[in-house]
Structure formats: C-alpha cells, structure tokens
Amino acid sequence: MSCLDTIADYGLRSIGIGERVLPRGDGIGLCEQFTLIGSGLIWNVYFGALALLFGFVFATALALAKASPRAALRKPAEWFVFVFRGSPLFIQFFVTYEALVLLPQGGLHLGGLTIPTGWVTSAWSGALFVLFLNTSAYAAEIFYGALRAVPKGDLEAADAYGLTGWARFRRVVWPTMLRLAWPAYTNEAIFLFHATTLVFFSSFPAYQQRGDALYYAKYFADKTFDPFIPYPIAAFYFVLVTLTIIGIFGVINRRLNRHLPQAARPRLRIRPQLIR
C-alpha cells in the first residue's frame, strides 16, 4: 500500500472519515504514523482556534468587569479569574466532565420544552467549553494588566476630542489595550494550543477512537513500544502550529502598531508560561 493510499484512508480519520480500523501490528509504518497524527491535529486546531475566538470576546468583557469600580461587576470577574488561573486545567476538565455527566440523561425539562443533554459530555462541546473558560481567564488577566497600563495621555486626548463612552472605548482604550497586551496574548495562544493535547487524557472519551494528535501518538507508542518515532512526529507538528501562530499573530501585531515609527514597534517574543 503506497503512502498516498494511507493518506486517503487515514487523513481524515480523526473526524470519522475513511478507514475505520486503526493500523496495527506490521501495518504501522512511518507513513501511517505521520498521517494519523497529522489527522489528529485537526482536533487541536479546532479546540485551539474556537476557544481562542470565543475567549477573546469574553476575556475583553472580563477585563473590563475586573477594572470596573462597581463591586457587583468586579467581584465575580475577580473570582472567575482566580478560580481558573489558580487551579490546574487538568482538574478543571475532570470537574466539568463529572458535573456534566450528572445532568439528567433524558434531557432538561423546562416548562414543556425538552433540552437534550447527551451532547454536552462529548469532547467537541464539553472540552471546548472548559478550554474557552480557561483561556478567557488567562487572557482576561493579560487584558486587565494592559488596560491599567493604557497611558493617561491617550485618555486625556480622547477627552479633549470629546469622545465618551463606547466611542472612547472603541477608538482609544481598546486598540491601545490590544497593542500593549498583544505579545503576552500571543504567548497565551501558543500555550492554549499546547493545552489542547490534554483533552483526551482527561475524562472526555475519544468516540470511535477519534482523537487528537497526542492521542494517536500515544496509541502508536503503546502499540509499537517505540516512543522515539510517534512523539517526535507529534512534536514536529506542534512546532509547525507554533510557528503558524507566531506568523499570524505577528501580522496582527504589525497592523496594531502600524502608526508607530519602525524602531519603536514592539517585537513578539515567545516566553514560556505554560501548563495550567
């Protein structure tokens, strides 16, 4: 069987398209490992991209709430950030999974309306939800720090132009906040993608062996008893993902800072701060 056949069979295996039975025994070659682990990467990108997208909006709201003078807004935001930044993501997965499992099997009955609950315990929804909350908390802390670092002069200039409320936020505060937060936020995005590898090692089941890159890497390592091939392959894919993120965020960074003179533009530096 040529490598192209393998790619046709297993390229989309992680989302349930193609050959059903995973390669085993002598059927495991370099090509199978590359294809299947790469196929699993679809899940990592799915979790990372969606959590980041939803999290970005929620984190902005959280950061504003945390910086609010009103305790009714500030306190819940502070607690949310404290709980999700102070505890391991791994435990958050377990807690959420066990809580979701306790929902009634037949669905929630709300005034004659039945909301099905079966889907919330699967990884695509439940794990995404946890990752979304988690990255929101981390990003909120970054945005909060940036919000407090918005130069006073910018705000005074906004006042001088007669900008208030939403217009002031949209046109002065928010862009400056993003500009200041962007290097740290890039870092957060990278480590969020790395954290997606935990999903299938917590309680969330890999339905019909549809897992992420590390799930398949571990599958191969367990089957061949040779860790020196699948894990470096997974590592290789993640280096590619990391470089892609740096590329995309770098473009956005340039756009955010396009009004500054060349030398004054902050460069992105990747600093490790992972595992939650």
Binding site: I190, F193, H194, A195, T197, L198, F201, L214, A217, K218, A221, P227, F228, Y231, A234, A235, F238, V239, T242, L243, I270, P272, L274, I275
Partner: peptide
C-alpha cells in the same frame, strides 16, 4: 519547550528513559 507541548515530554521522557 517553546514550540512543543510539555505533555509530549511527560509522555516521552519516562518511557524513553526506561528503555
């Protein structure tokens, strides 16, 4: 550690060391 998830190291190092 910047580009590679640490979870991979946690899975890889013990079994590689053992072997």
């Amino acid at each position: 550690v910047r580009g590679i998830p640490d979870v991979i190291f946690f899975l890889f190092v013990p079994i590689a060391l053992d072997q």
